[in-house]
């Protein structure tokens, strides 16, 4: 379990996160939502030891992150960052010190990339290579920072399947998204940030009921009847008129 209490992070004079508190549980996928600049990347960085000097507490199963050793930190969290490194090395070299070597690439159907140089890959291919690198690590919490931004539909499905596998294996998954309807389709919980403050923490169902999808992201829920008579609820981008109605849509 991950318990974050009163977390605040500064970079110089800029307050990146302010008094953030929430809990993540094992075996669940949590979607991290928020507008650009809301603090999603800062929160993921804070949870993966990027900011050594934070206020508040980040407790992994009762163990404070800042007091953990290097080896312990490596076993607590694994990361797929938003900004991927452009390093001129052969992809298989990334997996030299990984248990099982490039086997994880094979498992994702990416063995064709093993012999290529990282800088020769497209943005999406590079994303998948670093997804494989993240999956090759044994950790409690897996963080994915806008992992689907560069991916085609097949790549997105691969990311989703990977997250679902981590969930089945009992890990915690925290993934930031801009495609909110997509995130809500397979996430169990969600955190919503606004200007560095946490404005929602709870289940996806509660988020749908909260009206924040409309007030923060301009989305409205619409009901459709499918061909077999089932009622289907979809979140859609709202027009100006819908936004004016707030959460009633």
């Amino acid at each position: 379990m991950l318990e974050v209490r009163n977390l605040s992070v500064r970079a110089g004079k800029t307050l990146l996160l302010e008094d953030v508190s929430f809990t993540l549980n094992e075996g669940r996928i949590c979607a991290l939502l928020g507008a650009n600049g809301s603090g999603k990347t800062s929160l993921i960085r804070a949870l993966t030891s990027y900011y050594p000097h934070y206020q508040g507490s980040i407790m992994f199963s009762g163990q404070e992150l800042r007091n953990s050793s290097k080896r312990e930190k490596a076993s607590l969290h694994a990361l797929l960052p938003q900004d991927l490194p452009q390093v001129d090395i052969v992809v298989s070299s990334l997996f030299d010190d990984v248990e099982g070597g490039t086997g994880v690439l094979d498992g994702l159907g990416l063995s064709r990339l093993a012999g290529r140089r990282l800088i020769s890959l497209s943005g999406g291919e590079r994303e998948l290579v670093f997804l494989a690198l993240m999956l090759s690590r044994k950790a409690s919490l897996y963080c994915l920072d806008e992992a689907e931004a560069n991916l085609d539909p097949r790549g997105r499905r691969l990311v989703e399947r990977s997250m679902e596998r981590l969930k089945r294996e009992g890990h915690m998954v925290l993934a930031s998204f801009h495609d909110i309807p997509r995130a809500l389709r397979f996430a169990d919980d969600c955190l919503v940030l606004d200007h560095g403050r946490l404005v929602f923490s709870g289940s996806v169902g509660d988020f749908r009921e909260s009206g924040l999808a409309t007030s923060l992201f301009g989305l409205v829920e619409r009901c459709f009847t499918s061909e077999d008579g089932q009622l289907v609820k979809l979140l859609l981008e709202a027009c100006d008129e819908d936004v004016g109605k707030g959460g009633e849509a």
């Binding site: 960085r45 030891s49 990027y50 050793s69 290097k70 490596a74 969290h77 990361l79 900004d83 991927l84």
Partner: peptide, 10 residues
């Protein structure tokens, strides 16, 4: 591999 991945490895 960059500061973010290095930090995540402790």
């Amino acid at each position: 591999l960059g500061d973010e991945i290095a930090s995540s490895l402790g």
